[in-house]
């Protein structure tokens, strides 16, 4: 378990405006739930929480200290601001029990540069997170998978991941994680230049629009 600890304060039941006032005062509204205990509304220092996010992952277990009592939690969910990037509005902390398995999404990171990219291919990421079920203290921060052997047309699947014995994969094992897509030499020759492509597409679209309007006129006449 990570030794990081975060001081939180209990939150009186407040309205939407009350939450806005909290955010203006530099505190984030949050909730702790899970286990047999009832959910508790809390507030977290916004600056400290954002700093903590640099040190932990979403699946990291850490302590929340509320009125001198430490609770082992992990981040279950958060609400983002749709406009301000990296701005969080509300956090859900999940109260964990060391002997009860939890379902978490663990990020998958590619390691290395695929052989196929040197031949003109592009490494495509198909799945960024894999769902697993395991004990909370054994949740890996991320899975790393070596993609350096991938050639154009090759792919790696969820079943190729090396996971701890205690963990169980919940995602579909046949789902692709990474693949290298690319064009063969014949396709590249056949494809026209960028500008020509754009113009041709534009003409095509205009033609289609004209056809649409003519059809619409005809249908209107037919109705009348």
């Amino acid at each position: 378990m990570n030794q990081i600890s975060l001081d939180v304060q209990s939150k009186p039941k407040v309205s939407k405006n009350g939450n806005r006032r909290l955010r203006r005062a530099g505190r984030l509204p949050a909730v702790i739930y899970g286990g047999a205990d009832a959910p508790i509304g809390i507030t977290v220092d916004s600056v400290k929480f954002h700093k903590m996010l640099n040190a932990i992952k979403r699946s990291t277990v850490f302590n929340l200290e509320l009125d001198g009592i430490k609770t082992q939690t992990m981040i279950r969910e958060w609400q983002r601001d749709p406009v301000a990037h990296k701005s969080i509005l509300h956090i859900d902390f999940y109260r964990i029990q060391a002997d009860t398995a939890v379902d978490v999404d663990v990020p998958v990171h590619a390691v290395g540069i695929p052989v196929g990219t040197k031949m003109g291919g592009v490494l495509e990421t198909q799945l960024r997170r894999v769902s697993i079920r395991c004990l909370p203290l054994e949740v890996p921060e991320a899975f790393e998978i070596d993609v350096s052997a991938l050639e154009i047309g090759d792919s790696l699947h969820v079943s190729d991941l090396i996971i701890p014995e205690s963990a169980e994969i919940l995602s579909d094992k046949d789902q692709p994680l990474f693949n290298v897509a690319g064009r063969t030499a014949e396709e590249e020759v056949a494809e026209p230049e960028e500008g020509a492509e754009g113009e041709a597409a534009a003409e095509g679209a205009e033609g289609a629009a004209e056809a649409d309007t003519e059809e619409a006129k005809e249908s209107e006449k037919a109705k009348s």
């Binding site: 406009v83 534009a202 289609a208 649409d212 309007t213 619409a216």
Partner: peptide, 26 residues
Amino acid sequence: MLSPKRVRRRKVQKGRRRGKAYRGSA
């Protein structure tokens, strides 16, 4: 250029743009 293949209404009203894009913001 991008354009719909067919539409239900050829002409629509102007409308107003209010609020934030909650969908498609991530």
